[in-house]
Design a protein around this nucleic acid. Sequence first.
DNA 1: CTGTTAGCGCTTTCAG
DNA 2: CTGAAAGCGCTAACAG
Lengths: 337, 337
Amino acid sequence: MTNTSLKDLAKELNLSVSTVSRALRDSHEISPDTKEKVLILAKKLNYQPNPYARSLRKQKSKTIAVVIPEIANNFFSLAINGIESIAQENDYHVLIYLTHEDYEKELSIINHLSSGRVDGVLVSISSATNDIRHLEELHRKDIPVVFFDRISDNINTIKVTTDDYNSGYKATNHLIDQGCKRIAFLSISSKLSIGVKRMEGYKDALKDRGINVEEKLIVHTEGSPEESHNKIKQLLTDPNRPDGLFASVEKLAIASYHCCHELHLSIPKDVKIISFSNLETASLLNPSLTTITQPAFEIGKEAARVLFKGLDKHKTFLLNKSIILDSQLIERESTAK
Amino acid sequence: MTNTSLKDLAKELNLSVSTVSRALRDSHEISPDTKEKVLILAKKLNYQPNPYARSLRKQKSKTIAVVIPEIANNFFSLAINGIESIAQENDYHVLIYLTHEDYEKELSIINHLSSGRVDGVLVSISSATNDIRHLEELHRKDIPVVFFDRISDNINTIKVTTDDYNSGYKATNHLIDQGCKRIAFLSISSKLSIGVKRMEGYKDALKDRGINVEEKLIVHTEGSPEESHNKIKQLLTDPNRPDGLFASVEKLAIASYHCCHELHLSIPKDVKIISFSNLETASLLNPSLTTITQPAFEIGKEAARVLFKGLDKHKTFLLNKSIILDSQLIERESTAK
DNA sequence: CTGTTAGCGCTTTCAG
DNA sequence: CTGAAAGCGCTAACAG
């Protein structure tokens, strides 16, 4: 048994297809009687209009695509949650594509999306992506694109991100407030925009509170987990070791935490740690961890909202705006000693 | 500028639409020359066939839907990862729908999916779902359905889950191996299939190792987080307190962990804890936590694979099979004392 | 080997 | 108020 079609309804009621179509869309040029008859039968047969026939006819898919590098256990799950909720509100459908940080995959996915499958695209580019011509091409084909989180500065479209500078500033201030005098900054890259901006916030916070920025307290570990571990351990073994750590990504917070244990340093008594983290349960699982959380859900929602506005109004609406949301500092009472 | 169509190519090359269509699909009845000409132009214009026109014509959407209760920070993110990877391999697209544990929402989503939008559905039912007629209706309309993780026993279709009984058995044995003599079992429901099966594993493990099952060590906390907290605290305050805790969900592990801290009980010296958890970083963030992890990624993959097999072969292929995957016990060297 | 034609299910003129 | 007809972009049966 296949799905009911307009034709089926029409035949059953001795009406024409167009009348049935209009009745279902509550057109004013249909008599109340026929409307009712049609509606009743449609409900009875659970009529669901074929979305692809409609899309083809209306040149609109009522579908958006979300293209992201990864999904497991992090920021992106929450972002999708936000995106999906806004999509549902707008009666839109959400296609999901994972690039696994692979440029080739991203390329072929984005290329495909110019087919008319979707009305708009939400994208967070893969770390391997330098060339963004594939995204410009979408744009040129009048498919609105909104970047979120992982953005490219080289394209003239809207971007939704966290305020990394301010987050860095806030996190550093928090450690100072807790009494830290020497605060180290840990990052996984000296180039990535998020790392750089967070570091600027860190530096300015120190300056504003009259603390010198010591270059030796800024650690970039571009390589393996082992390298991170060693560098942090070295930092903490120094007789003049820092009394505060600002980990710009969660991974480094975990590494720091382990180093402290190995060196029998108590957290937060000997060393205070603050970290970027989107793991909601991070500070629950480890009460001595203070986290800076990106508003992932809100970023997803905002990105989707802005995309839908662009769909309604005009693509030019989406040109070169930037929406920057603030992060949140989550601190728990430490019950551990 | 809109997307290139077959007609555009045909006009440009002075060919008929059907010839171009056939050339692109590498039909044997087209001359090598024309094939080449067509292919070159198609590449040049980055021709992407309109998927909805094709779907309409072929009565096949090359799309599946994933319907799940939630996505953030857990099992489902990993499952989607698995599903998406298999879908990509099969050249399929993935629509995602969240029910937020709301029966009404699930109902309307599933109803909509009988429209022909998808060729198959992967579903993990919401906790609020008792009536599954909406899923049977899909089935009746010849749309294959595969259940994963949260299954219903009342429908005659394929199910993919973790081996909850064996997981419970394994977890309990692990605690016994660690020297525990009195092991408590914590669960959030005495009815939910996952809870019941895990408990059976727990009981049988105890029996097989010659340990008595004490009913007072089995705690079901059906209510609020506070209730859980209180019940666990009570359990641990008893002079004859358990030396091992088996938390059948992550939430309860975290609660247990906090209780231990409040009561100044050392983990794992005074109390050993093992917990179900899909948070990959859980045992990293807290080295004293041993976790039982569901093979979420594999479950996703397996569910998708089986769905595709059903699409290829026949819907009856999917009748009433059950695939049960095993969980994994993850233990870390405890560096904490 | 290539073209003509019909039709997937729907919306939307245009005619009554 | 209702119906007939065209067409969205594609595939496939049928002709040549």
